[in-house]
């Protein structure tokens, strides 16, 4: 019953609404940062806001298949928009870090090479690029469904690296990044066929 009404409500929502909402939200955050609305250290606040939202969307994207399989909630229509939006927020997160935070090409490069948590963050971003580029119907046709699916499995390592990136940058033992890592690991584990059959039966 509840699943049905959720699905019915979701059917009324067009996928492009996700792009619009994300663009409005990202612009609004930038505006807040520029006008004092994000506290006294807006660079860090904006960087973290974009990064965390991107991670949330990646986790949501990973949840689409299990949500349908195990709970019957159908978000498939939104998956592409969720993924592409996540990519653009990762890009915004990177841009704030590079341009507003680190501010110099040599320091950016030094950080990517020398700081492991930044290295894996960059790796995650790099893994997402082919996925974003091929997130259109033409690419699915060109690559063929099987190859396209295989390529898009790159989101698994990207998600894991993103979650580790967050855990690694935290000072001390903090709860929130652990929650993202735990969710990511859980959602990845659900992809293992053995676990799937056990849960489905």
């Amino acid at each position: 019953m509840m699943v049905e009404s959720i699905n019915r409500a979701l059917r009324r929502l067009p996928p492009w609404a996700i792009y619009v909402a994300a663009a409005l939200w990202a612009s609004w955050m930038f505006y807040l940062g520029a006008t004092g609305g994000l506290g006294v250290e807006p660079i860090e606040a904006l960087e973290h806001a974009y990064g965390e939202r991107a991670l949330q969307l990646i986790v949501l994207g990973l949840a689409v298949t299990p949500l349908r399989r195990f709970l019957g909630i159908n978000l498939i229509r939104f998956r592409r928009a969720i993924g592409v939006t996540a990519f653009f927020l990762v890009l915004a997160h990177f841009a704030v870090w590079a341009v507003l935070d680190v501010q110099s090409a040599s320091r950016i490069w030094a950080d990517i090479v020398k700081r492991p948590y930044i290295t894996i963050g960059m790796a995650a971003l790099a893994l997402l690029i082919p996925l974003a580029v091929t997130s259109n119907n033409l690419s699915v046709r060109r690559l063929g469904s099987a190859a396209w699916r295989r390529l898009h499995m790159l989101v698994y390592p990207a998600a894991l690296l993103g979650a580790l990136h967050y855990v690694w940058l935290a000072k001390g033992f903090q709860l929130e990044p652990m929650i993202y890592l735990g969710l990511t690991l859980l959602l990845l584990a659900l992809r293992f066929p053995a676990l799937q059959t056990r849960l489905a039966s």
Binding site: A34, R115, W168
Partner: peptide, 22 residues
């Protein structure tokens, strides 16, 4: 002497807003 996870060569003075330079 850098922190193992980040450089200590520069710093950002709080209060410079979104476009503060290091």
């Amino acid at each position: 002497v850098d922190h193992p996870r980040w450089s200590q060569a520069t710093e950002r003075r709080i209060g410079g807003g979104l476009f503060a330079t290091r």
